[in-house]
Design a protein around this nucleic acid. Structure first.
Lengths: 150, 150
DNA sequence: TCATAAATGTAGCAACAGCTACATTTTGAT
DNA sequence: ATCAAAATGTAGCTGTTGCTACATTTATGA
């Protein structure tokens, strides 16, 4: 029989990868990240902006926002724009940090800006803390190396 | 209105990321990769082996195998084990190459073997050709550097 | 052989993320 | 103020990937 199925859905083993839940978590990060950006930029985050940026219809965005609200990352009211909760802001901050580290690291390898950006969007969700730390460490190494070199 | 919706589902723009289709493609790669491993190792690939390795039930595996058969990557018959088509073998070969490059690269940064393996499983599906090439290039650079160093 | 275990198949449910079509509310321009 | 456009909501469909429960087939050991 399958390894898990122990309680209900508690205590997921590491073996269960790329599940619905994981994917949903990635979506959550993408959403809060963009919502934070939009609020920082134009003062508010509207569903239509998210839809355009993600290339999906407003229906998909609406349903995802409902879920994020249920999960406590955002708040919104009918026909109103979207706000982040404290948990949402925290998640957005963490996501952004990861994103920036991945982009900077790829750039340091000579990857072009646009490719670094788009690859980072996919990669950032699958980088463990250990690997992220290795990226940071390597960026520092490169900086030292450049410092000595010049 | 949404950017696409032009024909039916032709000409996807780059804006449409992380869609059903993409995710399905990742799953396809994971499956053919493991099927190839199993065949190479024990001579045959059974659904139960896939189920155990992915940590899902045999039902999920069975349905995915149906899809892969529909898409021309595998062949199978009721109550029989699974075989790769030429297309399936090609996909498995490419997936394995990407996987190995990513693992080698992460290892070269000092990431532990087990973390490198598990991170690679997620990352390999989101690395563009350009980034993969940058990994290869950096691995070569490191090799040269070590050669000179010693 | 033959009974049982293991593997696979089928039925039917849930959640997520897409979509179109249509309804409702807000916003903005005249 | 009003009317049209833009934005959001709702209904209902599809496809993918999970699951449990139960049926069927294959493999195995006594």
């Amino acid at each position: 029989m399958p390894v898990k199925a122990s309680k209900k859905r508690a205590a997921r083993t590491a073996a269960v990868r790329r599940t619905r839940d994981e994917h949903a978590q990635e979506t959550a990060q993408d959403y809060v990240e963009l919502i934070a950006e939009l609020i920082a930029g134009s003062g508010e985050a509207r569903a239509i902006d998210l839809a355009r940026r993600f290339g999906v219809t407003h229906v998909t965005v609406g349903r995802t926002i409902q879920r994020l609200q249920r999960e406590g990352f955002v708040t919104t009211q009918p026909y109103r724009s979207i706000f982040l909760t404290a948990a949402g802001r925290r998640l957005a901050r963490e996501s952004r940090r990861r994103h920036e580290i991945v982009v900077a690291f790829l750039r340091s390898l000579g990857v072009s800006e646009s490719i670094a950006q788009s690859d980072a969007e996919g990669i950032e969700h699958h980088v463990s803390a250990e690997t992220l730390q290795a990226f940071v460490k390597d960026l520092r190494r490169q900086k030292r190396s450049r410092g000595r070199g010049r």
